[in-house]
Write a protein that binds this DNA or RNA. Structure first.
Lengths: 211, 211
DNA sequence: GTCTATAAAGAGATAGAC
DNA sequence: GTCTATCTCTTTATAGAC
């Protein structure tokens, strides 16, 4: 275990390397990103990179752990709030979007480059992600049982529909684009909650979904 | 221009190679898939592969063109139907999902590996995709103008929310999973249209969205 | 902790026979 | 249209000096 020195900005070399790797992995993909390039952008020689990590995959693994820790902590803050299940769900949606778009590089790499991890590391990340997804399922179920969300779809299927809508935004979102992460979070919360509210608009044929 | 011979199943070697490449590109990504592997799965030698294509990128490019041609043709069939704008939109959603999940390999590769194409080819595919997206925008706008969809969000933002929800399914969908593409299409159409219908559920605070 | 130099393997693509 | 053999370049990773 090496003592991690820190530069003037208080950032360890290791975490700087992870940030650089995340940026490149999001932009070009894990396989198309070379260790030379990571070292170059970080301003060190390639051999120096291997003083900080053992393999290129280490960067992807640690980046995934960081990203999941971060979004889990953000979710904790929301889930422990007062209020109805659907109010917490709305807040969770907004926090999820703000987090993945605010830390776009790390979350994009985590969500899309997982297949490039060695099996053991991948399995661990998948398990962590399932823990996060399970808590969303529980919140959706609670909202259904409280009569706040429609009960004619399974919580798991609604969670998948929701995360679909939130996560794909990492592909096209640009920090200098028309809408902020917060605005997009509000929009998606609005569309999803209106679409799954128990108080349905008058469209009788769709009250009972045939899934 | 070579005469394309066909094997007993009536499939040209070239289209078989594209199908094999799509499968591997979806599973491992473009950069992580080797030409040796493509040739091996197709049952030929690597040198033979280069009799049919000039570069590895050709496979990705043609696969994208095929995928977009296919989904565009499917959309044409829906857009020319009789019925209200929202009815056509519902049908379009179901056709979109059935197409991308029914031809998962090609559409996943087209949607996620585009960055691996050379600039010229990528630009052409992006233009084709924009044409498809524009037609969705027009249909959403028509539904808004007809008073069938809520008008407090821009058509472009609603289209992005919709395609987010539909496209991310390519990451987790498995043909042997719980739901068929058709079932998922109905679910997503239901959630999106209920969420964006002009007849909103009674939740006064969300009638005017602050975007 | 960083460097120069290099090893060892794998990649895309081609030559030329059949 | 397919093959064996090979070229050339790039890749990940390591050796060992400072």
């Amino acid at each position: 275990m090496t003592t991690r020195s820190r530069n003037e900005s208080g950032e360890s070399t290791r975490s700087r390397l992870i940030a650089v790797a995340a940026e490149l992995f999001r932009a070009k993909g894990f396989a198309a990103t070379t260790t030379r390039e990571i070292a170059s952008v970080a301003g060190i020689q390639k051999a120096t990179l291997y003083h900080h990590i053992r393999r290129k995959e280490d960067l992807l693994y640690e980046l995934c752990v960081d990203a999941l820790d971060h979004i889990s902590a953000a979710a904790d803050g929301v889930l422990s709030r007062e209020g109805s299940a659907v109010e917490r769900l709305r807040a969770l949606i907004e926090v999820h979007v703000a987090t993945i778009l605010g830390e776009r590089d790390q979350h994009a790499a985590m969500l899309t480059e997982l297949r490039s991890l060695p099996p053991d590391a991948r399995a661990e990340i998948v398990t962590r992600r399932k823990g996060y997804e399970r808590r969303i399922d529980e919140l959706i179920s609670a909202a259904q049982e409280a009569g706040e969300l429609r009960g004619d779809f399974e919580a798991k299927d609604l969670r998948l529909a929701l995360l679909n809508m939130l996560n794909w935004a990492i592909f096209w979102f640009r920090p200098d684009g028309e809408h902020s992460p917060e605005e997009l979070g509000k929009l998606y919360a609005e569309v999803f909650l209106a679409g799954t509210s128990r108080a349905l608009p008058e469209r009788p044929s769709s009250q009972q979904a045939a899934l």
